[in-house]
């Protein structure tokens, strides 16, 4: 069993980001960057499967700037075996990412792809689904539990109002939710070993995928500053305000 785990370099979840003053995008100059938390969970899950003897090789892949190598090394310190890096400074959209992934899936022939359900920067929640469509593979999204049984997987999903368990045939795609596992702290010897694991770099041209964006960002705003509350005198006044001021009912 070969597992492919695509990961993304994103602003660390602890950083409070702000919009750029010209409203063109989020300002991420000189802020701390990390592995997207959902992707870290995906790496951890793959490593656990390998430790349980259910997988032989874990390939971790990222599309991003030169520095995204740091995130690949982090994933390899957790336990991935080798890395693939498509180097680009572009802000690549989900469809382009899915197409690039398809290229490597055809090349590497993994039996399973585990990836975050979404990245915490764009919050698209699309890449896994698009990749499944492009490959014609089954998908199980928002996984909170994964069990492999030979050529199929039982995946428990978090859905509105409860849990749903699906069986998918492999090869297939699983996207992770937050409660799937708690990623480990990388061990010092593993961090050092990760430096020596193979890492292959590619340019977008090497893989023949066009990263031209199809979406255009019109404007990015900070959330509105929270206004102070008011005390209402009666239920009627409350209903009136909800209806006419807040316009929510």
């Amino acid at each position: 069993m070969k597992i492919l785990v695509p990961i993304k370099r994103v602003v660390d979840y602890n950083v409070k980001v702000r919009a750029k003053t010209d409203g063109s995008d989020v300002d991420i100059a000189n802020v701390k960057m990390s592995v997207n938390p959902f992707d870290e969970i995906a790496v951890e899950e793959a490593v656990r499967l390998k430790e349980a003897g259910k997988a032989e090789e874990i390939i971790v892949l990222t599309i991003g700037p030169e520095k995204a190598q740091e995130q690949l090394r982090t994933a390899m310190a957790i336990g991935a075996d080798r890395g693939i890096h498509v180097v680009t400074d572009d802000n690549v959209e989900p469809l382009s990412v899915a197409k690039a992934l398809k290229h490597f899936v055809e090349k590497e022939q993994p039996n399973l792809i585990i990836m975050g359900k979404q990245a915490i920067d764009g919050d698209y929640n699309q890449t896994g689904q698009m990749l499944a469509a492009l490959l014609g593979w089954p998908q199980a999204t928002f996984a909170s539990k994964v069990e492999l049984n030979g050529d199929s997987a039982h995946v428990t999903r978090e859905i509105d109002g409860g849990l749903e368990t699906l069986k998918i045939a492999l090869p297939g795609i699983i996207t992770t939710d937050l409660r799937l596992n708690e990623p480990r702290y990388a061990k010092l010897p593993d961090i050092m070993k990760a430096k020596k694991k193979p890492l292959d770099s590619f340019t977008p041209a090497d893989i023949g995928v066009d990263f031209t964006n199809r979406l255009q960002i019109l404007k990015v705003n900070d959330p509105p500053v929270r206004q102070g509350g008011v005390k209402v005198g009666s239920i009627d006044e409350l209903i009136d305000k909800l209806k006419n001021e807040a316009k929510v009912i």
């Binding site: 190598q69 740091e70 702290y185 990388a186 050092m192 430096k195």
Partner: peptide, 22 residues
């Protein structure tokens, strides 16, 4: 011989995480 800026940074990053989270 293995010491590099990258490696030091990676270790400090992970070590720092352990300190702040554990």
């Amino acid at each position: 011989e293995d010491v590099s800026a990258d490696l030091l940074d990676q270790i400090i990053e992970e070590g720092g995480k352990l300190c702040s989270e554990v």
